[in-house]
Design a binder for these strands. Structure first.
Length: 278
DNA sequence: AACGGACCCAACCGCGCAATA
DNA sequence: ATATTGCGCGGTTGGGTCCGT
């Protein structure tokens, strides 16, 4: 049995969306809520396939989407999450609720990959700068220069991440220790594929901005429910119904002032040249 | 001003998974 | 158990814009 086309290819319009089409789509979703995409082109008369409608909504028209420049915090989040999760952009995007997976994917492919490559090349020439990044975190930093998806899916490297994380955590009595203990009890997330990087590096991406973004996610999701957004409903339910995923717990537990300092180091406040960032 | 290459990003394509008949 | 269908995801592409020459 061959897979049937998602929609009738004849008469389907392709290419950029016009403002008129956007208005039609938005007004329909306002009335009916997102979902049941197959019926959207039928009921609206849009000469677009259902996938195109869904993509346009989720990547562009959906309320609460933040566009434009990525902040250093967001960059850090993406880099670290990518090193942990690989190219699972949807999973990464779930931690950056104002960004779409497509946006993150594009930003990674156009900006961050180059930055990491540049950083990798530079650190080969300037080991001392590399030391800055790897102090007590040697288990994770090299991932920046590797094929991340393969790396993240490697059980060997996952165990290395865990090991490094536990080692650094065991000497701490801060709230991080709580997270470590939790991690010890629940060291398998999603089949064991999610493992945090050594916390020193990871906390560099944590800040109150990130926490506020999580708070934003909740508020926006709640408002989404008000507007009939089923995805938003799911998000709220996930917030209201513990347990949080390990990473979410970790994000919440790890918000310390040190995070800001580490971030500033990574973001250009260090002794290395600007080109060494990432 | 004109041209060409580099860059960026919105949109498309194909596949996998889950739900359902 | 199997076929069908719809949705979501990640990879890729096409075209517009930017920038250097």
């Amino acid at each position: 049995m061959g897979r049937p086309p998602c929609c009738d290819k004849v008469g389907i319009k392709k290419g950029p969306w016009t403002p008129e089409e956007d208005i039609i789509l938005v007004s329909y979703i306002q009335d009916h809520g997102p979902g049941n995409w197959r019926s959207v082109p039928i009921n609206t008369g849009l000469m677009r396939c259902s996938k195109s409608c869904r993509l346009r909504w989720t990547n562009y028209l959906r309320p609460g989407i933040k566009r434009g420049n990525f902040t250093p915090h967001e960059e850090g989040m993406i880099i670290h999450l990518q090193s942990l999760l690989g190219n699972r952009w949807a999973a990464i995007a779930s931690y950056l609720p104002q960004r779409t997976d497509n946006d993150i994917k594009n930003y990674w492919n156009t900006h961050l990959k180059k930055k990491l490559k540049k950083y990798h090349q530079t650190t080969e020439n300037f080991g001392n700068c590399h030391d800055l990044m790897t102090t007590s975190n040697s288990s994770i930093i090299p991932t920046y220069s590797q094929t991340s998806s393969a790396y993240a899916s490697s059980t060997e490297n996952i165990s290395r991440l865990l090991e490094g994380w536990m080692r650094t955590s065991s000497s701490s009595s801060s709230p991080k220790h709580t997270a470590a203990a939790t991690m010890d009890q629940n060291n398998m997330i999603n089949g064991g594929s999610y493992a945090p990087a050594s916390h020193g590096v990871f906390e560099s991406m944590l800040s109150f901005d990130n926490l506020s973004s999580i708070a934003w996610e909740k508020s926006s999701a709640e408002s989404a429910i008000f507007n009939g957004d089923s995805e938003g409903k799911e998000r709220v339910e996930s917030h209201n119904n513990p347990p949080l995923s390990m990473l979410e717990k970790w994000l919440l537990d790890e918000a310390t002032g040190q995070a800001e300092e580490d971030l500033m180091e990574l973001s250009g406040g260090d002794q290395c040249s600007d080109s060494v960032i990432f």
